[in-house]
Amino acid sequence: MKRLSKHTNKEIHKLFLSFLLMILLTALAFFLVLYQLISPPFLIVLITFFALIQIVIQLDRFMDIREKEGGYRLTSLIGGSFVALLAIVFLILL
């Protein structure tokens, strides 16, 4: 029982840390844009990178994408992203 509660605390901590990190990244991106501290092209790359980290956190920490059949789950996501990316690229190139 004691081990269980210790385990629980650890889990909650993990979730909370992920959440904190996400809020932090969002706030950072927000302030960077608000005060325009960096030159635009680099800024866009940076905040896109922040967004990617957040997505990975959500998928990994909250959505258990790696659990057991992670293979199929990831495949489904990659397939969708591949088609979505093609669509985005060629719609931008329009």
Binding site: R73, S76, L77, G80, V83, A84, F90
Partner: peptide
């Protein structure tokens, strides 16, 4: 759960296309 992940795959395409339209 597996079916739902494939639905998420479909939704990724849906939102991807919407983003594509927006950016275009």
């Amino acid at each position: 759960i597996l079916a739902f992940w494939f639905l998420i795959g479909a939704e990724v395409v849906v939102f991807g296309c919407l983003f594509g339209i927006y950016l275009a």
